[in-house]
Each structure stands twice: as C-alpha cells, then as structure tokens.
C-alpha cells in the first residue's frame, strides 16, 4: 500500500499514484487534525498533492528525497 492510514497519520511510501487520491481525500475529510508522514515518499501524483494542499494537512516528516522536499515544503508549509 503506497499510503498506510493510521489513526491520525498517513504514511506515504515510494510512489503514490493518482488512484490513491480519492481515499486520501475521504480520510482527511474526517480528520482535520491528521498529519502526513512523507519521509519514505519518492513521488506523489499531483492529485494527491492538491488534496494535501486543499486540506492544509500538516506534515510530520518531510521526504528524505531533498529534491522532492524542496518542491513540497513551500507548497505545504504555506497552508499551515
């Protein structure tokens, strides 16, 4: 599973595809305080990204991939 949903935290792993976006959206809709852990993520499809941005989801861990992190950090931090 590219996204592992825990109680109040979602763990992203490797490449997260467009198919995951709907589930992510539903999950976040019911958990306004949920955080995402992106440390193990190497890429996420734009659809997932815009769900995170719209939800202003908090990020508990940034990607280890520095290049990806440099993209995501400004976009997701501004939502906080």
């Amino acid at each position: 599973m590219p996204i592992e949903f825990k109680k109040n935290r979602a763990l992203f792993r490797d490449e997260v595809s467009v198919e995951e976006a709907e589930a992510l959206l539903e999950w976040l809709q019911t958990r306004p305080t949920a955080k995402v852990d992106l440390s193990a993520c190497s890429h996420l499809h734009t659809a997932n990204l815009q769900v995170l941005m719209t939800a202003k989801a908090g990020v508990s861990n940034w990607p280890k991939n520095a290049e990806l992190r440099s993209w995501l950090e400004p976009a997701l931090k501004s939502g906080e």
Binding site: V18, A21, E22, L25, L28, Q29, T46, A47, L49, Q50, V51, M53, T54, A55, W71, L72, P74, A75
Partner: peptide, 23 residues
C-alpha cells in the same frame, strides 16, 4: 528551481474534485 502554486482558489475540502487539476 521550481514551485508549485494554485493559480485559482482552492475549494473547501468537501467540494474538492480529486480528478480536476487545480495546480
């Protein structure tokens, strides 16, 4: 260098269409 931005407003989460690209 690059950046992600939302050229238009992002809708409330409840109205988000996952399959429509807004970025």
């Amino acid at each position: 260098w690059g950046r992600i931005l939302a050229p238009g407003p992002l809708p409330p989460l409840s109205e988000l269409d996952t399959y429509s690209c807004l970025l």
